[in-house]
């Protein structure tokens, strides 16, 4: 994949030939310093942004070249999102937020699966609450439950713990890890927190729009080491 913004002399390259596969039923983290292109990578993977050159596939669907309608349906049916903040609609209850993608698509809620997800995130007694009545951690867990409830091909999480304290963050990350391991949910998470990345099965390191390294079954220390190395290697503090 290549992605550049602007044209001619003013062109900025965000992705400079990234080739990457994400294994099904695995939890993959994308790491890199600010400006490394990790968010752009995720946006392109999820069909929120288009690539300048190259192709993106999710499962059997070729994302590149889909029109707005195709992309919308892809996002609705095959992709789940967890953003850093502002994940929930303030007018809907937690339950309504969770089932929102299904409601938009006019699909029925699989009650058994819904119950499983709810119990795993531990939100059963919070279902009728509005987002403003939930803590940040609870809100993020609702967002996770929403991403999972439609059983998408892949869940993209963009700095899901960026705005949380460490305890709430750990709960969210534990849930994502569990989803991949127990429910076989494919998850791709963008983060700059080595500790968060350590929950993943695999970590990909990005710098200057290129993949520069990867670690399988990472620990926080290993990730930190690699990051330091990365920073000195590319000269970014």
């Amino acid at each position: 994949m290549w992605k550049s913004y602007g044209s001619g002399d003013a062109a900025v390259t965000a992705l400079a030939g990234v080739s990457v596969e994400f294994e099904r039923e695995h939890f993959t983290a994308i790491m890199g310093p600010s400006g490394s292109g990790k968010s752009t990578l995720m946006h392109c993977l999820a069909g929120l942004d288009d690539v300048t050159d190259g192709e993106v596939w999710i499962g059997d669907t070729k994302v590149t070249g889909l029109n707005d309608k195709g992309l919308t349906e892809l996002r609705r049916d095959q992709v789940g999102f967890v953003f850093q903040q502002f994940n929930l609609l303030p007018t809907l209850t937690a339950e309504e937020n969770i089932t929102l993608p299904l409601a938009i698509g006019g699909r029925k809620v699989d009650r058994a699966w819904f119950d499983t997800v709810i119990d795993t995130v531990g939100l059963r007694d919070r279902l009728t609450h509005r987002p403003t009545q939930l803590s940040g951690g609870q809100q993020q867990r609702v967002a996770c439950a929403r991403a999972l409830v439609s059983r998408p091909e892949v869940v993209f999480a963009d700095e899901p713990t960026g705005n949380l304290d460490s305890k709430s963050g750990a709960e969210v990350l534990g849930f994502l890890q569990k989803s991949a391991r127990e429910f076989g949910q494919t998850i791709v998470m963008v983060t700059h927190d080595p500790n968060a990345a350590s929950y993943a099965d695999r970590v990909i390191f990005l710098a200057d729009g290129k993949i520069v390294n990867e670690i399988l079954d990472p620990t926080a220390d290993a990730v930190l080491e690699t990051m330091k190395h990365l920073d000195t290697a590319v000269g970014v503090s």
Partner: peptide
């Protein structure tokens, strides 16, 4: 704007 963005991101169609 952000809410609309979120809705579109999780798959709401323009017509919707």
């Amino acid at each position: 704007t952000r809410e609309l963005g979120l809705l579109r991101a999780i798959g709401m169609k323009r017509a919707q």
